[in-house]
């Protein structure tokens, strides 16, 4: 363990000194394939392509990168593909917490352990949004209205039994309310449906709703995070992300709910290969383009590798599993 840490530190030093990672124990010998577990244009797609563009721009890799979209079955296609590429470190799979949540709700041909986790590079926040002209000024009045008329409030989200749906179920439990969840194809669709007033609320990520927020179509009530979001430029009327209360302080007792942006390798790859990519991703994070991506999409810039990563995945899976089991979605 100590050895490994020292090694990682050494490689980091090498990289920091600006020497290419040529001395690393493993490096790609042929084109690297970035497998995106979403369709073109989706959040995971932007994540992977941002990483690709930074690597290409700064020449961090002496092999070309090809990006392949495998978004079928909510991303399951990409993970199954990763499983079949066992022992092949030239395929890197980009995803979210879908990797470990999907197999819980659907019968799929892979298990979460079939892939080797490399890193979590960012976490996307979830907020509770209502229409711009909604009567609800804060989360409290929203919850009260939902309590007064059970099964009347409609909350839109992306996909079914997926992150948005799980969050809505958590809200129902935590606040003791009953709502109608309407699954749409994407977060973008959920955003326009809310702006058009066809649903009462949604639980979109910041980047999915910012356009409509600026235009006054939607308005955030609270963020599902332990503390308020990072201060940035004001978005509307002098109000910015940091002015949004956390849902906990606003009266919905949910400590945190986030979606990690994950990077995986197929199963059965060497630790050297994992270390190589950890190092590569570290370099990516240091570039201004990465910071710009994080700011633009209003994500939290977090980086989990090694032991931290396993704890993160474990916790996230347990929380998801609790809701999924309680809702009876668990697949046998």
């Amino acid at each position: 363990m100590l050895m490994k840490k020292a090694l990682t530190a050494a490689t980091a030093l090498v990289a920091a000194l600006g020497i290419s990672a040529a001395e690393a124990a493993w490096k790609p010998t042929k084109p690297v394939e970035f497998v995106v577990s979403s369709g073109p244009g989706g959040g995971t797609d932007q994540f992977a392509r941002t990483v690709q563009s930074i690597i290409t721009k700064y020449n961090l890799l002496d092999q070309p990168i090809v990006v392949v979209n495998k978004g079928g079955g909510s991303g399951a296609e990409g993970f199954v593909y990763g499983k079949t590429a066992e022992g092949e470190p030239h395929k890197v799979i980009f995803g979210t917490n879908n990797e470990w949540l999907l197999p819980l709700v659907a019968k799929l041909a892979y298990k979460p352990e079939d892939l080797t986790p490399v890193a979590v590079m960012a976490v996307d926040e979830f907020l509770l949004w209502v229409t711009g002209d909604s009567p609800y000024q804060d989360a409290k009045s929203f919850i009260e209205a939902a309590k007064a008329e059970p099964g009347k409030i409609k909350i839109g989200g992306s996909q079914s039994k997926d992150t948005d749906h799980i969050l809505v179920k958590q809200i129902e439990r935590a606040a003791g309310i009953k709502v109608i969840y309407v699954p749409f194809k994407s977060g973008g669709e959920a955003a326009t449906q809310l702006a058009g007033g066809h649903v009462d609320a949604n639980t979109n990520n910041p980047s999915e709703n910012i356009g409509q927020w600026k235009a006054g179509g939607v308005r955030p009530l609270c963020v599902f995070a332990p503390e308020r979001m990072a201060k940035g430029e004001p978005v509307v009327d002098g109000k910015g992300w940091a002015d949004i209360p956390t849902c906990k302080e606003a009266g919905i007792p949910i400590e945190h709910y986030q979606m990690p942006r994950t990077v995986f390798l197929p199963g059965g790859v060497s630790q050297d290969a994992v270390d190589f990519y950890v190092e590569l991703l570290k370099q990516v994070r240091e570039k201004p383009e990465w910071q710009e991506y994080i700011t633009r999409t209003s994500q939290s810039n977090r980086f989990f590798v090694g032991e931290d990563l396993h704890t993160f995945i474990k916790n996230n899976e347990d929380e998801g599993r609790a809701v999924i089991t309680a809702e009876g979605w668990l697949v046998k």
């Binding site: 010998t29 042929k30 084109p31 394939e33 070309p64 090809v66 990006v67």
Partner: peptide
């Protein structure tokens, strides 16, 4: 186009892919 087509053992042998 950077669209990879299906590769087989020959490409692997030549180390192209």
């Amino acid at each position: 186009f950077q669209v990879p087509l299906l590769k087989g053992p020959l490409e692997a042998f030549l180390g192209i892919y």
